[in-house]
Design a protein around this nucleic acid. Structure first.
Lengths: 250, 250
DNA sequence: GAAACACTACGATCTTGGCCGAAGTATTCG
DNA sequence: CGAATACTTCGGCCAAGATCGTAGTGTTTC
C-alpha cells in the first residue's frame, strides 16, 4: 500500500558506492562483464558478484550469459532516467560545493548520456538549434519545427528510423552544465551521426567522448560551434560557444 | 571526477524507509511539519529530526521556519521526478511479483503525482484525450493539437497561466497502471480544475484523491469516463474505461 | 585430461548508521 | 512566570550489510 518502502528498496540499491559506480559505467548503454564492473567499481570480484546479483534480481540490470562470462546492461531506459535524475539533484543539492568540479574536464566537454550526447558540446548544439528555430525546447518538452525537419534532412540524419516508438525531441538536464541538452530520438540520431562520421570517439571504459579534428570542423560548419577538444591538461574548457542573443551564460 | 559516489550519496539518502516515506508524503507538493513527517514515516520525532536534517543538508528538502515549527517541502521538481522514476523501476523491476498490489485501491484509482493527477482516472483521461486527437502523447513527449486547444478553452481550463515556463504537455509513466498519464502544465491545469470544481478531494495525510459525486458526473460528461469512486472496500476497481480503438488493456 | 579463466557461494570480520530514551533549546499560551 | 508544545542534541544499543579470503562450479584452452 505504501509506496515509500518500494522506492527505498531501489534507492538503497543504488545508494551503495560500488553499485552506483557500476550503474554509472553502464549509463551509456554499453554492456560490460562482471569483471569489468568489478574493476570500475573498485571492489573484489566476489563482492562485485554479490552486488550484480542484487541489481539483477531487483530488475535494474539485464543479464546475458555468453560462455564463461556474464554481460550486464541497464534493464531499461527508466533506470537510466533515474540515474540522470539523481545526477541532477546530486549536483544542485548542496548549494555550497556547487561547481567545484575540477577534474573530469573531458567528461564536462562531451560524453554520452544513455543514447545521446551531453556536456558543453551537446548544450551548445541544443542552443544553436533553438536559436535557429529548428527546435523548440524547454525544461519539460520539445518539438521539431518544419524548418528543423528540412535542416536535418539536409544534414543527412535519418529521422524515419526513430519516429515510430519515440518522440523526436525531449530535453535532458545536463548535470555539468545545468542547462538542457537534446535527448529523445533526435538526440540519439545526432550522436549516431557524430559517431558514424568520426566526429567523436568513445573513450574506453568511460562515458567520455573526444572530439576529433574532423569533428571540430564538422561541428563548426554544421552548428557554428568553434573550439578544439580540451587537451585533458591545464587549458580546459577552451570551447567557445557563440554568443547567444538572449544573454545565456555559455 | 567519478559520478558514482555523488549519485550514491543521494540514493542512499532516499534509500532509507523512513526517509523514503517522508519524501513520498511530500510528493504532491504539500508542505508538512517535522511532526507530521515523523508520523507518516513511522519513527520517533528525534529520529525524524535527524533524517530531516540530512535531507535538508543534501538539498532534497526546502525548509521554512515559522514560529516553533518547521515546514518541509521537496526542494525542487527534480527531486519529485527522481521519486517518480524510482516508483516506475520499483514497479517493473522484480518481474515475478508484478501486480500483486492489493490494497491501496484508493491510491490506484486516483491520486496526485506532484502537481498533476495519476491513477486509473488520470490514465483514462489521457487515453480519452489521445483518442479524440486533442493531444499527441507517447513515452517521451506530448503535444497539444489545435482541436485540443479549443477543447480546453471550452472546458474552461486556463492555459495561458502555464504557458510561459513549461511545455503544456508531457507524459508521466503511471506506476500503478504502467501506462502514461498527463503531466506538465496541462496535467497541472486539469488537476487544478478538478479541485476547484470539487470533482476530487485530497485525502488527509495521503496522496490519494476521492472522486466526488459531482466529479463522477463531470468526468462522464467531459471525458466520457463512467464509473463510481471505489468504496474503499471489497468492490474495488469499479471504474469502467471506455473501450479503446487500438486494443489497449484498460 | 590438466590448467587457466570467469564467476559464484560461504563464512568471519568490521563498520555504518538507524533507533529511541533522556535531556536540552526555542516558542507559544495561560 | 510556569506549563505545554515543537523540535534538536547526545549517547548507547543493535542489526544490516559491505568486504574479502577461501573454496567451490562451470567453461575454455592447450
Amino acid at each position: 500500500m505504501d509506496t515509500g518502502p518500494k522506492i527505498a528498496q531501489v534507492a538503497a540499491l543504488i545508494g551503495d558506492p560500488a553499485r552506483a559506480n557500476m550503474l554509472s559505467a553502464l549509463m551509456d548503454g554499453r554492456t560490460l562483464t562482471a569483471s569489468e564492473l568489478a574493476y570500475v567499481s573498485g571492489v573484489a570480484p566476489q563482492t562485485a558478484s554479490g552486488h550484480l546479483a542484487k541489481l539483477n534480481d531487483a530488475g535494474l540490470l539485464a543479464l546475458a550469459k555468453q560462455g564463461r562470462r556474464r554481460y550486464f546492461r541497464l534493464a531499461s531506459p527508466h533506470v537510466a532516467r533515474v540515474l540522470e535524475g539523481l545526477m541532477v539533484v546530486a549536483q544542485d543539492g548542496p548549494a555550497r560545493q556547487r561547481n567545484l568540479w575540477r577534474g573530469g574536464e573531458t567528461l564536462r566537454h562531451a560524453r554520452t548520456c544513455y543514447d545521446h550526447m551531453a556536456g558543453r558540446i551537446a548544450v551548445a548544439i541544443a542552443d544553436r538549434l533553438v536559436r535557429q528555430s529548428h527546435i523548440l525546447l524547454d525544461e519539460d518538452g520539445g518539438q521539431l519545427t518544419d524548418a528543423g525537419r528540412s535542416f536535418f534532412d539536409e544534414f543527412g540524419v535519418d529521422l524515419r528510423l526513430a519516429s515510430k516508438r519515440r518522440v523526436f525531441c525531449r530535453p535532458c538536464l545536463d548535470w555539468s552544465e545545468r542547462r538542457p541538452h537534446l535527448a529523445g530520438a533526435l538526440g540519439a540520431a545526432i550522436l549516431r551521426h557524430a559517431l558514424e562520421h568520426d566526429w567523436v570517439e568513445h573513450v574506453r571504459d568511460s562515458r567520455a567522448l573526444v572530439v576529433t579534428p574532423l569533428g571540430v570542423r564538422g561541428l563548426a560548419t554544421t552548428f557554428g560551434i568553434e573550439g578544439a577538444p580540451p587537451t585533458d591538461g591545464r587549458r580546459a574548457g577552451c570551447v567557445t560557444v557563440p554568443r547567444l542573443g538572449s544573454g545565456h551564460p555559455g
